[in-house]
Simulated assay, not measured.
Amino acid sequence: MTVRPLDSLDTSVVLESVSRSYPNGDGAVAALDEVTARFGHGTFTAVMGPSGSGKSTLLQCAAGLERPTSGRVVVAGQDLARLSDRKLTELRRDRIGFVFQAFNLMPSLTAEQNVALPLRLAGRRPDRAAVRRALAAVGLADRAGHRPAQLSGGQQQRVAVARALVTRPAVLFADEPTGALDASTGREVLRLLRTVVDRHAQTLVMVTHDPAAAACADRVLFLADGRVRDELTDPDPDSVVARMLLLEASC
């Protein structure tokens, strides 16, 4: 069997034996326990599990927002443990996109200005054509001059997705991206995310508690007690629910 290197070109993110513990009184509590996972280029992975299973910690370690207690994380060929704080900040800024449940848009800025904000914060002059392309990719080319208060919740989340994509990241991390949306609007955002993966070969890792959202992914990783307990490929809502019930029954 051929073992692929951790920085192989077909893999955007690799976690190898990643653990993350937090102080708890005189001891420590493990949020992640020896987690190993690969996220291939141009794939859509959903991460699910009971409350406290380690989903958000996995995302934060994979995205370089937290450093693991032990183990190795490789993003876009870069071993995060080998990066200084400055280089890690630059990697997150240039090669990693984030979409959260809260849209986190600046209310005084237009959609176009919100999308351009990561470029300005990086000290780069925004390419207006690139910003407009990002808005067009999420179906909001005609809303470039609108401020968040003039947009629906779904449109605001689309702006947030465009903002995350404008730097052409190696991987897009989404933490409950439809959690603040109604069911219909949430489905629209999920269709958009699926299109971004299929049309632009974007790597996407999404934490969710919603089986219907997870069913939009290529595969689902199930966590419990800080470990990967199961995996499902080509999911549908019923199979996701069934796996979650088995997982919860075994905990």
Rank of each mutant, 00 (worst) to 15 (best):
191 R>N: 13
187 R>Q: 06
35 V>S: 09
120 R>L: 13
245 L>V: 10
133 R>D: 15
223 L>Q: 05
92 R>M: 03
165 L>M: 14
188 E>G: 02
88 L>Y: 06
61 C>Y: 03
80 L>Q: 11
31 A>Q: 09
173 F>N: 10
125 R>H: 12
193 L>T: 03
19 S>V: 07
135 L>I: 05
51 S>T: 05
218 D>T: 01
120 R>T: 14
237 P>E: 01
5 P>S: 05
236 D>V: 06
118 P>M: 01
199 R>Y: 02
235 P>R: 08
82 R>H: 10
9 L>A: 15
68 P>E: 05
68 P>N: 06
92 R>V: 05
180 A>Y: 04
154 G>F: 00
73 V>C: 07
104 N>F: 08
17 S>K: 15
148 P>I: 04
238 D>M: 07
235 P>L: 04
42 G>I: 07
180 A>K: 01
73 V>L: 13
20 R>N: 11
30 A>V: 14
52 G>M: 05
237 P>I: 00
203 T>H: 06
189 V>M: 02
15 L>T: 06
52 G>F: 04
148 P>N: 10
144 A>T: 08
161 V>Y: 06
40 G>T: 15
155 Q>N: 05
66 E>W: 13
156 Q>E: 05
180 A>I: 00
27 G>F: 07
8 S>K: 13
183 A>D: 06
99 V>D: 03
17 S>E: 15
80 L>K: 09
129 A>S: 12
78 Q>T: 12
98 F>Q: 12
91 L>W: 03
131 V>H: 09
31 A>T: 04
140 L>V: 09
61 C>F: 00
84 S>Y: 11
246 L>F: 05
37 A>K: 09
89 T>M: 13
13 V>D: 10
61 C>V: 08
5 P>C: 00
107 P>T: 06
48 M>A: 06
116 A>F: 06
168 R>P: 12
167 T>D: 14
133 R>N: 12
92 R>G: 08
125 R>K: 15
247 L>D: 06
207 V>F: 03
139 G>C: 01
117 L>H: 01
250 S>I: 02
29 V>C: 07
233 T>S: 15
41 H>I: 15
8 S>E: 14
232 L>Y: 07
152 S>D: 00
175 D>H: 04
86 R>G: 13
63 A>Y: 08
154 G>T: 02
43 T>A: 11
46 A>K: 01
143 R>H: 05
124 R>D: 08
128 R>E: 15
120 R>H: 12
6 L>F: 10
202 Q>Y: 01
152 S>T: 01
15 L>N: 03
173 F>L: 10
172 L>C: 09
232 L>A: 06
116 A>H: 04
201 A>M: 11
33 D>M: 12
18 V>A: 03
171 V>N: 11
145 G>Q: 11
205 V>M: 05
55 K>I: 00
167 T>V: 14
64 G>E: 07
113 Q>S: 13
216 C>Q: 15
48 M>E: 01
88 L>D: 00
141 A>T: 12
180 A>D: 05
181 L>Y: 01
205 V>G: 07
107 P>G: 03
40 G>A: 15
123 G>W: 06
245 L>Y: 08
74 V>Q: 09
141 A>I: 08
21 S>R: 15
87 K>R: 15
15 L>M: 09
97 G>F: 02
18 V>I: 04
70 S>G: 11
209 H>G: 04
66 E>R: 14
